[in-house]
Amino acid sequence: MSTPLLRCSNVSVAYGEVVGLRDVSLDVAQGEVIAIIGANGAGKSSLLNGIMRLAKTTGTVEFDGHDISRARASRLTRMGLALVPERRQIFPSLTVEENLLVGANALPRRERRAALAEIYDTFALLAERREQAAGTMSGGQQQIVALARAVISRPKLCLLDEPSLGLAPIWVSELFNEITRLARTGMTIVVVEQLASAALAIADRGYVLEHGRVALEGRAADLLGNAAVAGRYLGSVDQAAAR
């Protein structure tokens, strides 16, 4: 395999005393869609926060051949990394268009308008509501805003942190269709999800995290519906039954 677009080597993430991620290594090749699943507290968000330099990490993270382990968060967009944060975290007091323009900050000024136009072509919803304050939108709509804000800068790698969180099922399928479409344009995608089936259904490969470590990995099709995955996911239901 050629050099992976993203490589994490022995990455640990800690928030003060609490260890979120322990010694995790994984690779993401160009053009792949990777699903990271696991129960709450398994370390999924910690992984993304670590990659995006929003949390303290040890270990090495390499992106596109560069070591970004010590880089500043604001540099990463320019390098082609983008994040759709947990719980969307759009800028509530800004309008949809302003949110998108902030996302396009890394682009030179001339290109921003063009990128904006492209986004409006792709996401009709946003074109309709470009002047609406993002904070007044529903969760599902905000998720689209957050997604568009991340991809407007045409990143090489897009990280999505639990995009289905708090969304009604119909929005979930909309969203995952969108992600698939983006993947088809050649974007590399890493989706962290609690809703394992939705994530695995669109992914090439998957990793199951448990207690901050990689418990299982493999092709998404193999993991889907797998009983061992369910067991890991629900924190060893079987062990409890044995008591």
């Binding site: 129960a39 609690q194 809703l195 394992a196 089936s197 939705a198 695995l200 259904a201 889907l224 519906g225 009983a227 061992a228 369910a230 067991g231 996911y233 629900l234 239901v237 079987d238 409890a240």
Partner: peptide, 23 residues
């Protein structure tokens, strides 16, 4: 804990079928 609805809530539709046995 074993009810399909609960499994589905946590994991998604692929795990809703009652036949899924946890080994």
């Amino acid at each position: 804990a074993r009810h399909p609805a609960v499994l589905e809530a946590y994991l998604g539709p692929a795990w809703a079928t009652p036949a899924t046995e946890v080994t």
